[in-house]
């Protein structure tokens, strides 16, 4: 059991939890993830470790309520326990080229940049974060992210804050020399279409780019192979070989298709996940 010490609503469907798990906090490195299970009979789902505090023995996870399990988790409150939490899983981020590193977060993927960009800044890199959302109030963790990088660039689809447009448009401007300038490496975390668009943006400019893939997983230790992805024509297990892969080598079409394997079933559980049911 893992106790929830803090809960914050970042948007109506995006929630931040700081949970007490000293062993995971002590071992966690930027880019790794945990697997959680919320109730008996529940699914196991992977969640990126957004941040960790080794001394406090806590990690921070951010969830967007998109399915039954994220809704069960979203309904938990401070003082509640997460039934099962295991980690840290996956390989920590290894940046292909140091220098000017641009971290790109789409939607709640922005949260995953917290510990990652802090670490990269601490290593002496020049760091830029670009985050995007549909509108201003859906941009999350702006203050926290400001503190972990040199430049924070905001994008909204409706122009309510920052650049009006997608994160990839701002990225293209940087590549063209605007603002903080051309990146030496790019790391993108967010929805699959956004990561795919980032890959296409940096491909021509040949900027080393990593994306954090989040396929369906069960055990997270390489045992089931459900999370297999094709990268450069080779089959990789995202849970043990990833989650970071060379964006220019990833077969996104296959990854998107495999992530939608259970859409029909997910509709059957779509109505569930209210606070009442968890109790």
């Amino acid at each position: 059991m893992t106790r929830i010490l803090e809960k914050r609503l970042l948007t109506p469907v995006t929630k931040l939890f700081r949970v007490e798990t000293p062993l995971v906090a002590a071992a966690a490195k930027p880019g790794q993830f945990v697997i959680v299970r919320i109730r008996e009979g529940g699914e196991r789902i992977p969640l990126t470790i957004a941040d960790y505090d080794r001394e406090g023995g806590t990690i921070t996870i951010v969830v967007q309520e998109v399915g039954v399990t994220t809704r069960y988790l979203g309904a938990l409150e401070v003082g509640d326990d997460i039934l099962d939490l295991v980690g840290p899983l996956g390989m920590p981020l290894e940046i292909p080229a140091e220098g000017h590193i641009v971290g790109i977060g789409g939607g709640f993927g922005a949260a995953a940049l917290l510990c990652l960009m802090r670490e990269l800044s601490a290593r002496g890199n020049r760091t830029t974060i670009i985050i995007g959302a549909r509108q201003q109030d859906l941009l999350i963790l702006v203050d926290e992210l400001t503190a972990v990088c040199r430049d924070l660039e905001l994008c909204t689809d409706d122009g309510s804050l920052g650049l009006k447009g997608f994160v990839t448009e701002r990225l293209q401007q940087l590549i063209d020399g605007d603002g903080p300038g051309r990146p030496d490496s790019v790391v993108a975390i967010g929805p699959m279409p956004m990561m795919r668009a980032v890959a296409e943006t940096t491909r021509g400019a040949a900027i080393p780019t990593l994306v954090s893939l989040d396929p369906l997983m069960i055990d997270g230790t390489g045992m089931c192979g459900g999370c297999r992805v094709s990268v450069g024509g080779e089959v990789k297990f995202a849970c043990v070989d990833g989650p970071f892969f060379d964006a220019h080598q990833v077969d996104f079409e296959e990854a998107v298709r495999r992530n939608k394997m259970y859409v029909e079933q997910e509709q059957q559980t779509a109505c569930r996940g209210t606070a009442l049911e968890v109790a």
């Binding site: 009979g41 069960i218 569930r272």
Partner: peptide
């Protein structure tokens, strides 16, 4: 382990 045979009472599906 995940009881997909009891889906949708259990949350893990199988096709």
């Amino acid at each position: 382990l995940m009881h997909a045979d009891r889906f949708p009472d259990a949350d893990t599906p199988i096709m």
